[in-house]
Amino acid sequence: MAEPAPTWRLLERIAERLAEIQIRDGYRTDIGAAIALEPAQHPDDAAEGLTLASLGIQRDASKPHGRYRLLQALAEATVPVSLANAHARSHAIAADIEDALDDWIPLPSALPVQVEDVVFLDRPEGLPVVAVQVALTIRYRR
């Protein structure tokens, strides 16, 4: 069987790292228990969920010879608005994601994952959830 694409392996490693986000391990939330690698909504709007999806791959213009790439990804967590503290929980989840990825290197051919932006969405597309999107960039060597 062929090896997975390097970018897919990076996403798998990031998902494994985010799965460690558990209150018992010192985090604020247990969002690590609900991770998906496909860009689809979690089927249950009554439960929290975290989806990790790729946005694109670019050549790293700051490195010569075109051997370096930038993988852009998005970690999107949804929190049911039925929770009294849904907005506060979305902030806690964003902080947990940043803490989990801080100075962490997913593969030997990559640099630490960079958190670029955090965006909070209140009931996106009329859904009964609050969402937080954490934009990530991973520099790696092909």
Rank of each mutant, 00 (worst) to 15 (best):
M1P: 06
A2R: 12
A5M: 05
A5Y: 02
W8K: 04
R9V: 01
E12V: 12
E12C: 03
E12W: 04
I14K: 01
A15C: 07
E16R: 05
E16C: 03
R17K: 12
L18T: 05
A19P: 08
Q22E: 15
R24S: 15
R24I: 14
D25T: 07
G26I: 14
Y27N: 11
R28P: 04
T29G: 05
D30N: 15
I31R: 02
G32K: 01
G32N: 01
A33D: 09
A33P: 00
A34W: 13
E38R: 12
P39L: 09
P39K: 03
P39H: 08
A40S: 11
Q41A: 15
P43W: 08
P43M: 08
D44R: 11
D45L: 07
D45K: 02
D45E: 11
A46F: 01
A47I: 07
A47L: 15
A47W: 00
E48T: 13
E48P: 12
G49S: 15
L50W: 03
L55F: 03
L55A: 13
G56V: 03
I57L: 10
I57K: 00
Q58K: 03
R59T: 13
A61H: 00
A61F: 01
S62D: 13
S62T: 15
K63I: 14
P64G: 02
P64N: 05
R67D: 13
Y68V: 11
R69M: 02
L71S: 01
Q72I: 01
Q72T: 05
A75H: 09
A75W: 05
A75E: 09
A75Q: 06
A75V: 14
T78L: 01
T78H: 06
T78G: 10
T78A: 12
V79M: 03
V79T: 06
V81S: 14
S82C: 03
L83E: 14
L83Y: 13
H87T: 09
H87S: 10
A88H: 10
R89N: 07
S90D: 07
A94R: 04
A95P: 03
D96M: 06
E98F: 05
D99N: 11
A100S: 10
A100R: 08
L101H: 05
D102W: 02
D102Y: 06
D103S: 07
W104P: 08
W104A: 11
P106R: 00
L107N: 02
P108A: 10
P108V: 08
S109K: 02
E116H: 08
D117W: 01
V119G: 02
V119H: 07
F120E: 08
F120R: 04
L121W: 10
P124A: 10
G126N: 13
G126I: 11
L127E: 11
L127G: 13
P128Q: 06
V129Q: 08
V129K: 05
V130P: 00
A131I: 10
V132Y: 09
V132W: 07
V132A: 09
V134S: 01
L136N: 02
T137Y: 03
Y140T: 00
Y140L: 01
Y140A: 01
Y140D: 00
R141E: 12
R141M: 14
